[in-house]
Design a protein around this nucleic acid. Structure first.
Lengths: 147, 147
DNA sequence: GTTATTGCAAACATTTTGCACCAGC
DNA sequence: GCTGGTGCAAAATGTTTGCAATAAC
């Protein structure tokens, strides 16, 4: 993926182009290891000696907001615990962070052969991110206020 | 769930019984809101004025190790980003935290009616926790060393 | 030239660690 | 009484914020 293409991706998303942002976006597009802010910082600080972690965080936030990248583990602010260790799913409200159990969903996951040869699955975890009833209503209220 | 039952759960798992641990386990079994350490601390500090967050964290760690509770959002130490925002799954190694993409899995999730009435799903997220090939081999080595 | 971004310092939140005192067995 | 847990202080880690210098348009 060449620089021109990266530049136009940023422009299309109305994100001002800077060398730091180009480099971070390039890393995200190239790498397959799902880096953390720290990992990106470490690999780019030689190329940009003045680069700081703050800029990496700022950039990631901006890219995520435009849908150019996403967190593999959202809702990571603090660990949330469940005393029910039987198999079930979680629905997580992206607004109020409420977590709702779903015990009666049907989940079917078939994994490709290549994958089962390199990875031993111990736990399978389905999370549904979205809006709970209360937060949907709040969102509707927001829309109403805009009229 | 009465105290006797909680005591025997702890004893069965060879966890020394203390009032703090009983109270935390009780909360985890009773509550449906998947509390954080802070939330548990807040609701128990009236009953145990001397209680500290440290004890809550210690207890949660011990309970999790015995499978008596689990984190809803494991691998929360630092956010990991993905530049590929198309739908795919992640396999996450619980040992080295490597994250592997799976693009060719078949995922079918049917949600109960009651759920769709109270929650609007925006993103569905399947995470497979387990061991990557390298860490499986290390685990085998560990076993070999024990012989 | 104006606006937005970067980099610095510092704050903040979450979680972990070292150590003295205390409670469970 | 011994072992291990609790509570305190402090450190470590990940992330965010306020502000002056600087770069993008």
């Amino acid at each position: 993926m060449d620089k021109k293409e990266l530049v136009s991706i940023l422009r299309e998303n109305e994100i001002q182009v800077t060398p730091q942002r180009l480099a971070i976006l390039e890393q995200l597009k190239l790498r397959k290891d799902h880096p953390s802010a720290e990992m990106l910082f470490t690999c780019l600080k030689d190329e940009f000696p003045s680069l700081t972690l703050v800029t990496v965080y700022n950039t990631l936030q901006k890219l995520e907001l435009s849908g150019l990248c996403m967190k593999v583990n959202p809702l990571h602010t603090s660990a949330r615990y469940d005393g029910n260790v039987t198999a079930h799913q979680h629905a997580i409200c992206i607004n109020c962070q409420k977590i709702v159990d779903i015990h009666d969903a049907t989940v079917f996951i078939e994994l490709p052969k290549w994958f089962n040869e390199i990875f031993k699955v111990l736990k399978q975890c389905v999370n549904l991110y979205g809006l709970c009833k209360e937060c949907q209503e709040l969102a509707d209220d927001d829309k109403a206020l805009l009229n």
